[in-house]
Design a protein around this nucleic acid. Structure first.
Lengths: 260, 260
DNA sequence: CTTCGCGTTCAATAATAAAGAACGTATATT
DNA sequence: AATATACGTTCTTTATTATTGAACGCGAAG
């Protein structure tokens, strides 16, 4: 995929922006950025200065530190009105929402985590997911769907990291998670069984864009009792059918689930 | 402000992303991008390829065109949880919302338009502004506040462009708008008097970060009748006081409105 | 079957970004 | 209060890198 070599300064510029996400700090100094990315101080400064002039970073006058700029907000808003995945998957999410009146998500992989790219809220309860927000793979339905089909080496890297525990149901053991991923592949869907928050469950399915290649994952989440009811009303089958439709109509890939 | 010279390739990379916003097209070919930015075809390709590898652009396999990538969504979400303006202005918006139960916005300048960076919804009616979305200066309260304090040359450039008419109240005449801006400066606030949508009005004030320098603008919007009532209940004064507070506490600038 | 258009690759050179040293300012230290 | 320190910023040089135009190849159109 990485055909031609990346342009160094562009790549570095974005890794500066990424650093704010990863570091989990809202303000970083020139020095911190330079050290964090192993860049020369003045090289870092040149990049930071450019990003600041473009509105992607802004300087806090009081302490000379930099933070992410508001320009990025406007870009994201354009993404939401222009990106095919968001645009063309959205109607399917709407339909799922209407069928079960639960919160519906669409997520993609981002590094070692997942990012929610679209969402339709339930009428009753609001789940506080923000579009664009990141979450872990090990504790989310969409995450498990995506993780289950990543190359083994990537899987192992992610599994080897510390997996934070959010509830007593969170799978934090790599052996157990490997089994869970195997189960996910076998049955074609993943569950979040109160692994993020007690009382909250979710059913998720992968959307394929090519054999064994997951483009995104969609999920239906809600209070555990309600998800249980929905499952009795064919939620899993509906989700699988929807995912296959999306594969075909959006990603132009005629996905046929393996029958065993 | 533009201290050191910007790094060319970084600047160009972002102007590619900007092009999608400006062109209003969701998909652009290498050729269109190259021509749109007066770049050599292979220079453009190198930048596009890098952006695509970073997830900021994605390629539509069916027609070889590119569109904005989902990576940008995750950056924006981080902005919302980290940026001082968003974070520190938000409580003031909340307070305004509680006082009048109307929709409250915070916007900044973006090029020749404004971008909404934060919003608190009213309980009753939902105004469909999206955070990050762009709007024109000539027909919004926040836009007039910002435009009124821009350097004259910039003002004139914006005024000279075609101003689209959204309702019969929209000011589309540059002479009339110049007077409106003069009025805004004199009385310290701007109104949108059903200029975007009939039935909808808004009162906006500029927030200064230095003399004659507007950092952002905040506004209260709602149905015209309700805004009228709120105005009788001191909305304008409350907004001005709030703006002064924000100037002081967020931008460390002790703003004193000129008394005449 | 041929031509055209456009995405992509390649190789050479011109231009640019990177680096280290130096400067200045703000803060911390004694 | 004086000195030291740390860090942001500027400057200049050089090596690296991005840019360029030409060439290639694929797909669509005629």
């Amino acid at each position: 995929m990485a055909t031609t070599k990346n342009i160094q300064s562009v790549e570095r510029a974005f890794s500066i922006l990424d650093l704010f996400q990863q570091a989990g700090k809202s303000e970083l100094s020139v020095k911190e950025i330079a050290e964090g990315l192993h860049l020369n101080k003045s090289t870092a400064f040149g990049l930071i200065n450019t990003l600041a002039n473009l509105g992607c970073l802004q300087k806090d006058r009081s302490n000379q530190k930099y933070m992410l700029g508001l320009k990025l907000l406007s870009l994201a808003s354009t993404v939401q009105t222009q990106n095919v995945i968001v645009l063309s998957v959205h109607p399917y999410l709407e339909r799922l929402n209407r069928m079960y009146d639960e919160t519906v998500h669409c997520a993609i992989r981002n590094g070692d985590g997942v990012v929610y790219v679209d969402k339709v809220d339930a009428g009753s309860i609001h789940i506080s997911t923000q579009i664009g927000s990141q979450n872990d793979m090990h504790c989310t339905g969409v995450g498990k769907c995506i993780l289950a089909y990543l190359p083994e080496s990537t899987q192992e890297r992610i599994l080897s990291k510390h997996m934070r525990s959010l509830t007593y149901n969170t799978i934090t053991n790599s052996h157990q998670l490997r089994e869970e991923l195997e189960l996910t592949r076998r049955r074609g869907y993943a569950m979040d069984n109160e692994e993020i928050s007690i009382g909250l469950s979710c059913v998720a399915v992968p959307v394929f864009s090519a054999p064994d290649t997951v483009a995104c994952a969609i999920s239906v989440s809600g209070m555990t009792v309600r998800i249980r009811t929905a499952t009795e009303r064919g939620l899993v089958e509906t989700l699988k059918r929807t995912a296959a439709e999306i594969s075909r109509e959006v990603f132009d890939y005629d996905y046929r689930p393996q029958t065993d």
